[in-house]
């Protein structure tokens, strides 16, 4: 295993954040109420954004380790 443990932890956090976002999106899709949609917009989508940043950070770190960047 060559992975740096903090990077794996960050990616696990990204998975959890995406899961929370996904559940919120499913709630909006199954039963869309104004309050649910508002929470999804202001909380769910930023969580997904944070997950994407974590994923992008891990990818960049990976590329730097392999001296491809």
């Amino acid at each position: 295993m060559t992975a740096h443990p903090p990077r794996v932890r960050a990616l696990k956090l990204a998975i959890l954040l995406t899961a929370v976002f996904d559940v919120m999106a499913l709630v909006v899709l199954v039963r869309s109420l104004p309050i649910g949609f508002t929470i999804y917009m202001f909380l769910g989508q930023p969580l997904f954004l944070v997950a994407l940043v974590l994923l992008a950070g891990a990818v960049l770190a990976d590329l730097r380790t392999k001296e491809l960047l």
């Binding site: 990616l11 976002f21 996904d22 999106a25």
Partner: peptide, 26 residues
């Protein structure tokens, strides 16, 4: 750990499919 297979799953599960979910749910 962070194997090439894990990277692939992460790209799909955290990067690509949630984009579709975000678009459709929004």
């Amino acid at each position: 750990g962070l194997t090439p297979i894990a990277r692939g799953w992460l790209l799909v599960a955290v990067g690509l499919v949630p984009m579709m979910v975000a678009f459709l749910s929004f």
